[in-house]
């Protein structure tokens, strides 16, 4: 078991399934709906026969009753490709005010979420891939199936470290192009970036019919800016340090954050992304449970 997998939590989550919100295009049969008709046991619909159809699929009983030719179609079941996209910019190293166990930073929180999700997907036979977005040492593991591949993914996940800045938008474009269509893309990030840059990337993923889920990881202190005295802020992505007086600009900061969050929400809703703003003072297990239940 990986260090990011909590056996008790996994045990608790195992009854829940990681479902796709839309038909997936898998490589093998699985538990997820496919956009194409297949030969499964689940009846889908009747349709009129057209020349060229396989005569074996004619419903002769229906011809006998109605003297017309109908073709009987069944749903196709397939697996999904889960691609975990992990933001590895420096801002992901932000320390949690209330660390729990070994979860000390935003990156740790994201790794626990991603690792657990990968394990769940692998357990139900889905393919799992990993994209860690880093400015110098990006990690890109294509989706694959099986315990060995999962172990590899978790190992890569463990080795991801956050530093400096990263171009999340470009990376998402790359993921959208590289992944086969109709995959499940789950992004873990603080999304501290220009929304005008993020918007095309999100729309690109949706245009490729990917099922997009976004975990927007935020620490409550980042929302409230609840310092009680002037503070020198060291930028985690290497920018110039700032001296900020909460008495002077605290309220204005909260207004800016509120405006930013509204923009993110609006963007995600318009793109039909499965958007989850996560306040990291909550146990990640609850976050996962809520995410899975929302897809059940």
């Amino acid at each position: 078991m990986s260090e990011f997998l909590d056996p008790q939590l996994m045990n608790r989550l195992s009854p829940l399934a990681l479902n796709a919100r839309q038909p997936m295009m898998g490589s093998v049969s699985g538990r997820h709906r496919s956009p194409v008709r297949g030969s499964s046991l689940e009846f889908a619909e009747y349709r009129n026969y057209v020349p060229g159809d396989d005569l074996r699929r004619l419903d002769w009983r229906a011809w006998g009753r109605s003297d017309r030719f109908f073709v009987k179609e069944f749903e196709a079941d397939t697996n999904l490709r889960l691609s975990v996209v992990l933001d590895a910019s420096g801002s992901m190293n932000y320390d949690l005010r209330k660390p729990v166990g070994s979860i000390l930073t935003r990156m740790d929180y994201a790794k626990y979420l991603a690792g657990s999700l990968a394990w769940l997907a692998s357990q139900q036979g889905d393919a799992v891939g990993l994209s860690a977005i880093h400015h110098s040492t990006p990690c890109d593991v294509p989706p694959g199936r099986g315990p060995r591949h999962l172990g590899y993914v978790l190992e890569q996940l463990r080795d991801v470290s956050a530093s400096e800045s990263a171009d999340l938008a470009t990376a998402l474009h790359h993921v959208a192009d590289r992944l086969p269509r109709r995959s499940l893309v789950v992004v873990f990030s603080d999304l501290f970036m220009d929304l005008e840059e993020l918007k095309p990337a999100i729309e690109h993923l949706r245009w490729r019919h990917h099922d997009l889920a976004v975990f927007h990881l935020l620490e409550p202190s980042e929302l409230e800016f609840d310092f009680d005295q002037p503070v020198k802020l060291i930028d985690l992505e290497g920018d110039t340090p700032l001296l900020a007086d909460p008495a002077l600009m605290g309220e204005r900061y909260r207004e800016v954050v509120q405006g930013y969050l509204s923009g993110v929400t609006r963007l995600m809703n318009r793109s039909n992304a499965d958007y989850h703003r996560v306040q990291m003072d909550k146990p990640y297990g609850d976050v996962l449970t809520q995410f899975l239940l929302g897809r059940s």
Binding site: G90, S91, M92, N93, Y94, D95, R106, D190, F192, E219, E222, F225, F227, Q229, P230, V231, K232, L233, I234, D235, L236, E237, D239, L242, L243, A244, D245, L248, M249, R252, Y253, E255, V256, V257, Y260
Partner: peptide
């Protein structure tokens, strides 16, 4: 102002925006 403490911060873009607006 001189007695400030130092803290690592991720959302500096919002601090800059707030400072500029302020």
């Amino acid at each position: 102002q001189r007695r400030h403490k130092t803290s690592s911060w991720a959302a500096t873009r919002f601090v800059r925006q707030a400072t500029n607006m302020n």
